[in-house]
Design a protein around this nucleic acid. Structure first.
Ligand SMILES: [Mn+2]
Ligand SMILES: [Mn+2]
Ligand SMILES: [Zn+2]
Ligand SMILES: [Zn+2]
Lengths: 129, 129
DNA sequence: TATTATTTTAGACTTAGTCTAAATATAGGT
DNA sequence: ACCTATATTTAGACTAAGTCTAAAATAATA
């Protein structure tokens, strides 16, 4: 077993910021947040830690097609929807139909390993403006 | 009506490269391909043209979570699947269930405007290796 | 303690793309 | 055709996000 996770103080602090945020923060936002909590880690350490935590399965990296990745402490299977106006990212727990994925297997000949749905729309707050 | 598209020689050449490719090429690949055809446009012109063509609805920009965008001359509604091993991108025409999208509307309170499904897997060629 | 492996650090570097100001090209009015 | 206004292209400087490297600091092992 090599599933032992080595949570150094840096990794722990970064993990905590991600879990306590409800915002799917970017690396830049994480660094800013760390600064507010009195931490100042090297740039490389933050990225290194984000990779480590992702690799260890403790967080997920979200690539929503913006310039930068976002990070998610919720590792339960779910998808995301992003507001076109304010940019906030919310959770979507209604899962896509499993039959659909099998269909793709047949259609393309690929062995499907994963899928990601990125929804865009207007959030409730931005609708009232 | 301002729907008049101004296809300058540069834009036309870039559009042709995208349409003749069956590969969802990146900007870098488009530039390389142009070079092979004897064109050498400024870097900025290529990106400017890609935006223009996208804005005009002649092509689609694909953000699959790699470093760089890909471009697609097929503007019919479809999704994509990418091979984890060789990186090739193939079309998926089986559309996602419309009910699913309505469900999301209800679940999140968002007005859903668009959705993109990114599938990852192993392509037929890479399976035989 | 001495040796080895792991992690962090600062800062140089890379990649993909944007921005800017000048040069060209195009279109419209006379 | 000539002048003017608008649109486009160009070269190259610049930016944002992230990677890489080599040395220093920590931690683990003998
Ligand atoms: Mn999430
Ligand atoms: Mn396509
Ligand atoms: Zn919003
Ligand atoms: Zn493949």
């Amino acid at each position: 077993m090599d599933s032992k996770v080595n949570l150094t103080p840096q990794r722990k602090a970064i993990y905590d910021v991600i879990c306590e945020s409800n915002n799917h923060p970017t690396a830049a936002e994480i660094i800013e947040n760390l600064k507010e909590n009195g931490f100042r880690f090297a740039y490389g350490t933050v990225y290194n830690s984000l990779h480590y935590l992702t690799e260890a399965g403790l967080i997920h990296e979200l690539k929503l097609g913006e310039g930068s990745s976002r990070y998610d402490g919720n590792i339960d299977e779910h998808q995301h929807i992003q507001c076109e106006i304010c940019g906030r990212v919310d959770e979507v727990f209604t899962e896509i139909n499993g039959e659909w994925l099998e269909e793709i297997d047949k259609e393309t000949g690929y062995t499907v390993k994963s899928h990601q749905v990125i929804l865009k729309g207007v959030c409730p707050t931005c609708q009232n403006q």
